[in-house]
Design a protein around this nucleic acid. Structure first.
Lengths: 115, 115
DNA sequence: TCAGTATATAACTATATGCTTATACACGCA
DNA sequence: TGCGTGTATAAGCATATAGTTATATACTGA
């Protein structure tokens, strides 16, 4: 009957609560198609570095995102292996893509690239 | 390309925030298949009547649910005409159904029926 | 080794949230 | 009309949340 696995309600509400913040939700949508580092988010959201860092920590604490240090920078990316990723993905698919933010960064020469 | 309409990020985060509470999320899942009145929710959630009422008000304020008075009771139901209902629906579909709560009510003779 | 840059963490603060209790309102029925 | 039942609202309180500033940590390159 049910093609997709269901998520425990407690768990689901925890995830939704985390996504119920415009900054974190936008971060997740961005990360779905682009790796980003903290300083890029600071630019995109015009928000202080600690504020960004704390949002990312919440996303990382429940392992929705992964981090990887490359030199000075720490890059964040979506954790597609997350048990509940299909759920997250289905939510993100309803959101408008945020490619403009990335394009804008590139135009301003603020996109971080370390290869 | 995109088969489904997208939702403004601010709007989406507002909806997710509301669903990011286990009581309200469960209410929505229940209401998706059953009309319920306040006193039934009080039974199901073992929560005070004002607490239930306040959760329902939040859901009603953004028109996720409709209410209809029938005699002494006020019945709540999902508002399928809501502009963002497809989004809501896709979320609820990932959740385990809550029919047991309803069955339990019926067994205890607490299911309200006014016809 | 030291300065500069990127990030994390701690401590604090203002506001939001979810409950409680008390009370008001609405309906049905004797 | 008055009482019982169902629901809503108001006010208060404890906790959670999201930001701030200050500071610590980690890496790079001179």
């Amino acid at each position: 009957m049910n093609a997709t696995a269901t998520i425990d309600l407690q768990r689901a509400s925890q995830l939704l609560k985390l996504l119920g913040d415009p900054t974190r939700l936008t971060m997740m949508k961005l990360l779905k198609s682009h790796e980003c580092c903290v300083c890029e988010f600071v630019e995109i959201f015009k928000m202080s570095q600690p504020a960004i860092s704390q949002h990312l920590r919440k996303l990382r604490d429940i392992e929705l995102v992964k981090e990887e240090r490359r030199g000075q920078w720490i890059f964040f990316s979506i954790n597609e292996s997350h048990e509940d990723y299909p759920f997250i993905k289905s939510i993100l698919e309803h959101l408008p893509n945020q490619n403009e933010s990335i394009t804008e960064l590139e135009v301003q020469g603020l996109r971080v690239c370390c290869e």
